[in-house]
């Protein structure tokens, strides 16, 4: 028996919004410790690695490990039916071929349930390898999303240059060129708004705007984003 409850459906809506443009389908691996999802995107260029710890749920029970292959477009259809503040309960029986999503309104007067067929997806054991990155930048997630959006107008790729002093984002194309520099925050009054750089050695790397803009769909999940960079390894 698997059962996971969130007091606000909004949390899972945000998680789904963060991944559904990259993945058509994915396996949610449920165990006692929580739900894991690892999948390469449809073009096999990036990896989505998601961990929803059991203690992040308001109620969590998983008697036996369970792999639930889901079509994310169908899951999105279901999640769209929930109000943000509805309580969400996901349920599946052991060896079941369906999962149930139940939404309860705050006043308990509306209860809806949706059953979705599970899929058998190829299981691959994927993950982001432990890496000592040359530069790790922590910055406001909204600011990063804004920079990616703004620079996408000027080119198909963004160059990120990181030194101890700051981080520079650049793009260029037919319309001209654009540079955005962020200095490391001198005092950390508000942690959420700070830019913090841990640098072993400077790096200059180029990334496709298309993917950066897909990654920033996760922006509503957290105030800060961490960019970990080294030459010749993925961001």
């Amino acid at each position: 028996m698997f059962e996971a409850r969130l007091n606000a459906s909004n949390v899972l809506k945000k998680v789904l919004d963060a991944i559904k443009d990259l993945l058509n389908e994915a396996t949610f691996d449920c165990s006692d410790s929580g739900i894991q999802l690892q999948a390469m995107d449809n073009s096999h260029v990036s990896l989505v690695s998601l961990s929803l710890r059991s203690d992040g749920f308001d109620k969590y029970r998983c008697d036996r490990n369970l792999s639930m292959g889901m079509n994310l477009a169908n899951m999105a259809k279901i999640m769209k039916c929930a109000n943000n503040d509805d309580t969400l309960t996901m349920k599946a029986q052991d060896n079941a071929d369906t999962v149930t999503f139940m939404f309860e309104s705050q006043n308990q007067e509306k209860v809806s349930d949706y059953e979705m067929k599970l899929m058998n997806l190829d299981q691959e054991h994927l993950g982001i390898p432990e890496t000592d990155y040359a530069c790790v930048v922590r910055m406001p997630a909204m600011e990063f999303a804004r920079i990616c959006r703004d620079l996408s107008q000027f080119g198909e790729s963004v160059v990120i240059s990181c030194t101890k002093e700051g981080v520079k984002f650049s793009a260029s194309g037919d319309a001209g060129s654009a540079n955005i520099k962020l200095a490391q925050t001198s005092t950390i009054d508000k942690e959420d708004e700070s830019v913090i750089i841990e640098m072993q050695e400077p790096v200059t790397l180029t990334f496709a705007c298309r993917y950066l803009n897909s990654f920033t769909k996760a922006t509503p999940l957290c105030n800060q984003v961490q960019l970990s960079m080294s030459a010749d390894v993925p961001l």
Partner: peptide
């Protein structure tokens, strides 16, 4: 294909 293969290997796919 080459970059995709390299990335798949990097992330641990067979």
């Amino acid at each position: 294909g080459t970059i995709q293969n390299w990335l798949a290997g990097y992330f641990g796919a067979e």
